[in-house]
Structure formats: structure tokens, C-alpha cells
Write a protein that binds this DNA or RNA. Structure first.
Lengths: 229, 229
DNA sequence: AACCAAGTGGAGCTACCCACTCCGCTTCCT
DNA sequence: AGGAAGCGGAGTGGGTAGCTCCACTTGGTT
């Protein structure tokens, strides 16, 4: 969902846009929304490599219009993903509050990965930096203590192996992410198979071995390998 | 392997090719070797994105010299990685011959990943296609039955979970690969930690839980996230 | 209804990158 | 000594992506 709450012309709206100014004309405000929606779609599908021309085309507008609202690509990306990142934080808070520590841990991994799989742009923002690295780094710093607590609770509960640390979680997310999304309609849930495998490596209690979904077809694997990710 | 377009010729010294055409001049043959060595280094360090200018510079030669021996980038890449791929096949054969089926399976994963970690170019060739995709696809087809046997033996031995298939192995390699190499001198063996985690998810017998190495530092993770891979 | 600042489109500018070529000069080898 | 093979590396061509410019349109105010 696009953040529509920011008044177009209010001073310091995005934090990035310097100029305070009069309110936007009605059509301009409408187009601003269109740009944000189009950007959300395009970046979700193709990642941050998509150009602002792509975004403009999707929005049915000219590039100039896009650049009139957002001084450059980075500011658009930031406007889009700032709240996405906050949502991840909320997810962590929610997970920490889960009655079962292990379930909370799994819940966090599963849900945050699901978001990244849906939204390739989000994965790019989180895992490949470049854009908004300031925001992301800051988010990471806020997130780390939460993850640490998530881990420690699950370890105290006896379900999670003791030698896992918060930093590992990021790496695990990256691993599963590397195997996610390739496949579009083909095998969109394949990543869950490998998350399950990983979780079975994390759990202390082997009696409850995960059941994996359908294995990938050779064609799916072929396609996965072709992606430079 | 192709030699040239304009100047036919084959190395007298190389022994890699049996072919038609006059022998290379002594200095030319020497330079050809230099090019190959430089290419091996540069591609190993920076992956296939490295340019032939980079290779030439590393070799202490001009680009023209590189292109005199190899008509284009692809032919150089192919000359370099054809036998690397064959080595992987040999590895699989060796692994299948291992007395302990589970150890054979682990051996294969561990060794082939170790190669890819050392050689970023090899990872690119195997996992991101583009170059030599014909060769790679063919190699994959030859490799698949070997991996299947590897898996089935380990499953028959009771060590490997039954729901794993050959295609999974490629995906697992990709996953671990995504987390490998970033780190240069920093934490070159970090990938083993995550391979161990995965293996613990693959094994049926939980009594032998792996001991992980040192966890990554925040700086290491930071750096890992910055890489677009 | 008239006016004009705000807004728009999209061709095109700029800057960059990389695979590859060209050609005057050098080196090997007979 | 002669000439073919080889060499260096500036330059070319082609592609891409971020961004600008400005003639034209539109919204909203008077």
C-alpha cells in the first residue's frame, strides 16, 4: 500500500525533499499517486533495476512528470520503501510477542521472507543496498536487538539450537532469498521448501521433521540458474 | 577450443588442441599463456563481469593481443572453464565411489562449493549462465544422474532424508553460494557455517549435530548485504 | 471568459561502460 | 635483411540509464 498520508506540499514531507511549497494542483496530486502505484508494481516485479522510464510508462505518464514529483530515483525509492521497512519492524515486534517462542521465530522468518518474495524491490533494498542504505542500516540496527531477543527466547525454550546469533538470521534470509522469486508463476512457493530444510537444521528436536512441498522440476531449476541475482 | 579467426595457429607447447595451422611464434605462445593465467585470476576475483581490458592489464599486455588469441570474451571464458567443469564431473565420480554414502554426499557438496568460493567466475558460469550456457547445460545433464545416485545411496544408507531430489542439490549450492565469497579475507570460511546448518537439516540422525564455526561479525554481514549477487 | 502559473510529455542530452577494431610500430625467425 | 606475425592501446560503436528542457496543455482563480 502506498503511503498517501503525506500531504504533497507540506514542509519536510519526505524528509528528503527540501522545499516547502503550496499544495499540489488536483491533477498533479492524482498523478503523484499514480507514480507511486506504478513504482510499487514495477519495482516489485523487476527490482530496483527498473528505470524511471519504466515507471512512467506503467503510470501512463511522461518521465518528466515523475521527475517533477521526485527529484531523482533514490528519493522515489525511499518514499516507497520507508514504510515497508517499518512494517518489518512491526513484524519483529509481533513475533517477539508470540506466545510460543519458537513459533514466533519461525513466524518472523516466514513472514519477512514472504514479503521479499512478493516484492523484489524490497529484497533489493534490504539485501543489496545502494539505495536508501542509510535507512536500511538504521533499520538493521533497530532490528538486531529484536532478532536477538527472538533467538534467545527460542533458545531458552529449548527449540532453537544454541549456537545461532542474530547476524545469522540476516544471512539465512539472504540465502533463502537467493532462491526465491525466480520462478514467477512457475513455482512461487519453492522457497518454502528450502526454508523448511534450513529450519530443520536449526531446530533441536528432530522428532518433528518438516514435510517439504513438491520438489522443483528441472525446468524450474534451469530458470533459477539463469537469473543473475 | 577455438584459436583465432585471422591468424590460424595452434600452440606447439599447449597440447590442449590437436589441429591445423602453423604454430604460434614463441612470444605469442607465451603471451597466450599469460592471458589465460591473468584471466583465471581476474575472473576468479571479480567474476565474469570483469572486462577483457582488465584481463589484458593484469597480463601486462594490450587488449589487442588478447583479442588476437581469443576472438571474443566468450571464447576466452569457455577456454578457461571447460576443464573446470570437467573437474566437477570428476568430483562427482569420486564422491559416488566413496565408501560411506553420506560422507560421499557431503564430500561432493563441500568440495564443489569450495571451488566456487575460491573462483567467483566459476560460480558465474555455473549459476548465472550467459556464457557457455551450452557447455553448462550439457554438464548439468551429465551431472544429474551422478547426483541422483549420490542421493539415493545416502538415502539407502539411512542418513539422508528421503524427500530430497537431485534438483534440490543445485538449489542448495546456489543458496550457499549466495552467501559465499563476499568476504574476501574477512571471513572466507563463513559459508561452511551455513552449509553445516543446511546439512543438519538434511540428515536424519539428530544425535550428530554439527558444530558451527565462528559466527559472522556485524561488519561481515554488512559487507555481505552490500554485494549485489 | 480570460489569464497564467503549474503541470505535462517525451525527445534528447550527458555520462558512462564495455566489447571489440584498427593500424603504425616492434619482434621473431628464417 | 626482409617480411610476416605479433603487439599496444587509443578509438569506435552501440547500448543504457538518469535526468533535463521546453513547447504545449490544464486547472483554478479572478
Amino acid at each position: 500500500m502506498v503511503n498517501t498520508t503525506r500531504a504533497p506540499g507540506t514542509p519536510g514531507s519526505g524528509g528528503t525533499v527540501g522545499s516547502a511549497g503550496p499544495a499540489l494542483r488536483a491533477d498533479a496530486a492524482r498523478n503523484r499517486e499514480r507514480v507511486l502505484e506504478a513504482a510499487a508494481q514495477v519495482f516489485a516485479e523487476r527490482g530496483l533495476d527498473a528505470t524511471l522510464n519504466d515507471v512512467a510508462e506503467r503510470a501512463g505518464l511522461g518521465v518528466g512528470t515523475v521527475y517533477r514529483r521526485f527529484p531523482n530515483k533514490e528519493s522515489l525509492v525511499e518514499a516507497l520503501f520507508a514504510d515497508r521497512i517499518d512494517e518489518l519492524m512491526a513484524l519483529a515486534v509481533e513475533a517477539v510477542g508470540h506466545p510460543d517462542p519458537w513459533e514466533g521465530f519461525v513466524y518472523f522468518l516466514e513472514r519477512s521472507l514472504a514479503r521479499q518474495v512478493i516484492d523484489r524491490g524490497l529484497r533489493d533494498v534490504l539485501l543489496h543496498s545502494g539505495f536508501g542504505s542509510h535507512h536500511v542500516a538504521e533499520a538493521r540496527d533497530r532490528l538486531t536487538p529484536m532478532v536477538t531477543e527472538l533467538i534467545e527466547r527460542a533458545q531458552a525454550g529449548g527449540h532453537l539450537r544454541g549456537d545461532l546469533v542474530a547476524m545469522d538470521v540476516l544471512m539465512l534470509v539472504k540465502m533463502v532469498g537467493s532462491v526465491a522469486d525466480y520462478v514467477g508463476d512457475d513455482a512461487p512457493e519453492l522457497w518454502r521448501r528450502y526454508l523448511a530444510l534450513l529450519l530443520d537444521g536449526l531446530v533441536t528436536d528432530r522428532s518433528s521433521i518438516s514435510s517439504l512441498g513438491k520438489p522443483p522440476s528441472p525446468e524450474t531449476v534451469e530458470r533459477a540458474m539463469l537469473r543473475r541475482e
